[in-house]
Design a binder for these strands. Structure first.
Length: 391
RNA sequence: GUCCCCAUCGUCUAGCUGGCCUAGGACACCGCCCUUUCACGGCGGCGACAGGGGUUCAAAUCCCCUUGGGGAUACCA
């Protein structure tokens, strides 16, 4: 309907040039050192011309008919101020494709008008096509919306980050275990800041404090490290119940999906302080369920094979064997007893213990882990460490 | 090529109406402290006004040029 209106008013016209012909045309222009541009060859077709093309079975596109004379078009942008373009630089843009579908340019103008859109906030890449949208509005007799062209999100090499290239769709971040609140908070800070040093802001606060005047002009690199930090922050804050609910789909993807639910719940709570993303739960789960005979890292071997380590293991094994019940609260007591007995303390005491018990050199609080693992398992692993050294 | 946008630490940024900036914060990195372990946390360190001209008593802040980066130049959005 809008296209028909424009054609009737002489602001648009059917164009029968085929993609192949356009290709050829541009190639020749480039060869002659000219900028590739539609040359307007179908701007003024006669009725006969049209009939001839129709008879050939050609389906036309509809193109905007930009003014013959050069005009100055000024875009008033909420973040960039006034930006001037020359209509001469613009092309007779296709607004309806040969399959009858409108292109973005026509669709966005018509759609926004019908929906009563007052503000168009879009990325900077759209700034150069805004003059076209302004023409469309003008010809259709509509008041254009207010525009704000936001800075681009950039890859590490400072090129434009595109949702059509790479693994950067919002869904991809969800799949990688990032929380919506973390992503939103992080994204809000790319190209905008509240003006003070506040960085951690939940959505309601973001909404309250946001103002378009404080939007920056330069593009910003998407820094995964900072996102990680923020994600971890929100993860640590989270109540255990909600965390477990969010963790479920990630647990479901692992080999441990069928384990006892109460146990999984306990593990998730234990592991919370060590999570950077939800997906990290997988590797931590492995820590609890890995088979005793699994291959060990060089670090684990290094810290479990010292003379001091062996001394600690023997003492701890004895302590543990004599303990009726092992809990997160009693574990440190056992370690304390070992310290007294062996005179080993601090890192040289805890590090080998952790490595022998969890088969990792890092992880959540050892007492908590030990509680989940249970007495029998720990005894078995200590024996294993002892026998490894004996061999 | 042409048009347009942009330019403060490695990254995100504060600084916008010029003096309070020997340029502040955050992430990352490095120390120290806390913790008998891991992490959290606390403290500190490293680290930037792209260059050159102006304007001014005074410029990161205003103007110009250069350089650099990015975007757009599709029957994609």
């Amino acid at each position: 309907e809008a296209a028909d209106t424009l054609i009737a008013a002489g602001h648009a016209y059917p164009c029968y040039v085929t993609p192949d012909e356009l290709d050829e045309m541009r190639k020749q222009q480039v060869a002659r050192g000219l900028p590739p541009k539609y040359d307007g060859r179908h701007r003024n077709l006669t009725a006969e011309d049209r009939q001839r093309f129709e008879a050939q079975g050609r389906k036309p596109v509809v193109r905007m008919k930009l003014p013959e004379r050069d005009e100055r078009v000024v875009v008033s942008d909420l973040v960039r101020g006034k930006v001037a373009f020359n209509s001469k630089e613009l092309d007779d843009q296709v607004i309806v494709k040969s399959d009858g579908y409108p292109t973005y340019h026509l669709a966005v103008v018509v759609d926004d008008h019908r929906m009563g859109i007052t503000h168009v906030l879009r990325a900077e890449e759209w700034l150069p096509s805004t003059p076209k949208h302004l023409y469309l509005c003008k010809w259709l007799g509509w008041e254009p919306p207010l525009y704000a062209h936001l800075p681009l999100l950039l890859n590490d090499d400072r090129s434009k980050m595109s949702k059509r290239k790479g693994d950067v769709a919002a869904e991809a971040y969800r799949a990688k275990g990032y929380l919506p609140e973390a992503l939103v908070n992080f994204l809000a800070l790319l190209g905008w800041s509240p003006g003070d040093d506040t960085e951690l802001m939940p959505l309601p606060q973001l909404i309250e404090r946001f103002s378009i005047e404080r939007v920056t002009k330069a593009g910003s690199v998407f820094d995964r490290e900072k996102l990680n930090w923020m994600n971890q922050h929100y993860l640590q804050q989270m109540p255990a119940e909600r965390l477990f609910a969010l963790l479920r789909p990630f647990v479901a993807k692992t080999a441990y999906a069928g384990e006892d639910e109460a146990l999984l719940r306990k593990i998730c709570a234990t592991v919370q302080p060590a999570l950077v993303t939800l997906a990290d739960v997988e590797k931590h789960l492995g820590l609890f369920f890995r088979p005793d005979g699994a291959p060990l890292s060089a670090d684990v071997l290094r810290v479990t094979e010292t003379a001091t380590a062996l001394q600690v293991f023997r003492a701890f094994r004895d302590q543990l064997a004599r303990t009726p019940e092992l809990t997160a609260a009693t574990f440190p007591l056992l370690v304390k007893a070992v310290q007294k007995e062996t005179q080993v303390q601090g890192k040289s005491l805890w590090e080998p213990l952790r490595a022998a018990i969890t088969l990792e050199t890092q992880g959540p609080d050892l007492a908590l882990v030990a509680d989940v693992l249970g007495k029998e398992k720990i005894l078995a692993r200590l024996d294993l460490a002892l026998s490894r050294s004996a061999a």
